[in-house]
Amino acid sequence: MNAKLASRSGRLAGGWVVTAVFCFPIYLAVVNAFKANAQIKSDPLGLPNPFTFSNVITALSRPDHLIQTGLVNSVVITSATVALLIPLSSATSLWLFERSARVKGILTGIFALGLMIPPQVGLQPTVQVLKAMGLMNTYPGLVLVGISGGYFAFAVFVYVGFLHTVPKEILDSARVDGAGDLRVWWSIVMPLMRPATITVAIFVGLWTWNDFLGPLIILGPTQGQTITVAMYLSLGASAVSTDYGQVYAITLIAALIPLIAYLFCQREFVAGLTSGAAKG
């Protein structure tokens, strides 16, 4: 009995040690964001003493408001991308689900390609098309590329995969009742597919929020940037790279919203990530 207890507490202690080592970089980013530079230098590992908000305040009081603007832009672009992608991809998936095996096979193959193509490959022509359409350097341009590229292919895989688990009788009986395709999709299938929608929203939301290359090139320098790129712009210049407090404060601000979302909806996040990953 004692041996079992010892091994259990040994495992617990071991678990905590490994987790602590693994999360140490996160700990450093958090504590150092609230220390004065002098303390970061003299005592990089310790807790803030005294605790200070000055790094965060400096980051937020830049004359160009890069950080606040970035946060607002990221929220808007991410919500617009998710809000547009979900109806488009779920309707397409339902349509695709009811096609013949041959059509399904061909389109699935084409979408599989979209999952794999690195964004760098088609970036130059993408820029040219956006320019021709007058959408280069605009938020709609970035959102449009976001909702119709690899994210779209991913969403279709998630939805089609989920549709296989929906009993066919539900769709059939709705049709018998005289419901049109659009109503079947919106009123019957969409509520059933809620878990798939959560998966798509989490993945696409995270990818859009964290995307770097897309906003860097497509939004460009004149329109205000997303927080991910804004962080790079404000810290990329070496002028601030010895201001460690500044780097940590901006890192923390940039990570805050996905982090809060994750902590509050942990169960959905983990479930969404695992089921989405299996499709990807």
Partner: peptide, 13 residues
């Protein structure tokens, strides 16, 4: 909860 945090962070962060 702690161990899963890195996968929600962006590459830049």
């Amino acid at each position: 909860t702690l161990a899963f945090i890195p996968q929600v962070l962006s590459g830049v962060v």
